[in-house]
Amino acid sequence: MDSRHMQIGEVAARTELSLRTIRHYEETGLVIPSARSRGGFRLYTETDVARLMVIRRMKPLGFTLEQMRDLLAATDRLDSGELDTGEREALLERVRTFERAAEEQVEKLRVQLARAEDFAATLRGRLEEPAPAARP
């Protein structure tokens, strides 16, 4: 169970997200702090950190905030355990759709990485070429 609470600074350090980004995700409703301290400070749990990590992983793959919200809603509902078979299958299919989209983005990134590595190798080769003989 999530009994230990963390302040936003610790969450930022653990997720490698800025305080501003975490606050933005709160403003957009993606992650709501589980509690507030008596002084009004945001308090987060391990579940909140896990949710932020999902968002952090989705962002570089080009998912929109709305898509993030949709996936998180589906996984939240799946985690609730109060589903009939039809609803569970529909939610799993939504998650599968995101999994396929993530795999497509990963493949595109692999192609980009291969091209970048080829480019770097070309430059490295250029730098390793012997200098042409100087003309008198």
Rank of each mutant, 00 (worst) to 15 (best):
L61D: 03
L61T: 01
L61P: 05
F63T: 01
T64M: 10
T64L: 10
L65N: 13
L65M: 13
E66N: 15
Q67N: 07
Q67F: 02
M68N: 04
M68C: 08
R69P: 01
R69G: 14
D70F: 08
D70P: 02
L71I: 03
L71W: 03
A73F: 00
A73T: 04
A74I: 04
A74M: 07
A74C: 09
A74G: 09
A74T: 06
D76L: 02
R77S: 05
R77H: 11
L78A: 03
L78G: 04
L78E: 05
L78M: 03
D79V: 00
D79S: 05
S80G: 03
S80I: 00
S80M: 01
E82T: 08
E82S: 10
L83K: 06
D84F: 03
D84S: 08
T85H: 02
T85S: 08
T85G: 06
G86S: 13
E87M: 12
E87F: 01
E87K: 13
E87G: 05
R88Y: 01
R88D: 01
R88F: 00
A90E: 15
A90Q: 15
L92W: 09
L92V: 11
L92Y: 03
R94C: 08
R94I: 07
R96C: 06
R96M: 11
T97C: 14
T97L: 14
T97F: 11
F98H: 14
F98G: 12
E99D: 12
E99Q: 12
R100F: 02
R100E: 14
R100A: 14
A101N: 11
A101Q: 13
A102E: 10
